[in-house]
């Protein structure tokens, strides 16, 4: 019996622990794949290859959560420059000041003892 390599979730978590946001790219169709998995959901090819995101992204959709019992907080969908989308949040700015189209920079932070990929506004050049 051959031993299977660790699952995609493990590879993703291992990346975060090293300060990398990993995604996959399909060797056949070239599309970016996120969340990581054992086949490309676009063309069906097996074993898309790991890559590491450079960390630049753009706000695709945004909301400010307004719970009754705690301070408002931010949730958004971010389009990474490499061509995939993920849920995250933008720190370092008021939640309702975040706008769709804002440019962002990845910031992996430690939360509840685990690394979490958040974003901050990109510095203007």
């Amino acid at each position: 019996m051959t031993e299977s390599p660790p699952g995609p979730w493990s590879g993703y978590q291992e990346g975060l622990a090293r300060g990398e946001l990993r995604f996959q790219r399909c060797g056949e169709c070239g599309r970016a794949v996120f969340y990581p998995r054992l086949l490309c959901p676009f063309c069906g090819s097996a074993d898309p290859a790991w890559e590491t995101a450079a960390g630049g992204g753009t706000v695709y959709a945004t909301t400010t959560m307004r719970p009754r019992d705690e301070a408002p907080y931010h949730v958004c969908l971010v389009d990474l420059d490499e061509g995939f989308r993920m849920m995250s949040r933008v720190d370092g700015v008021a939640p309702d000041a975040v706008r769709i189209g804002d440019r962002l920079r990845l910031l992996i932070v430690e939360e509840d003892g685990r690394p979490v990929p958040t974003f901050v506004p990109a510095e203007r050049s």
């Binding site: 969340y35 909301t63 959560m65 907080y73 949730v75 849920m87 995250s88 939360e111 979490v116």
Partner: peptide, 12 residues
């Protein structure tokens, strides 16, 4: 993949 960001299902 979404849980760390505390969305409130399904409202968010």
């Amino acid at each position: 993949w979404e849980e760390p960001f505390r969305p409130r299902w399904p409202l968010t």
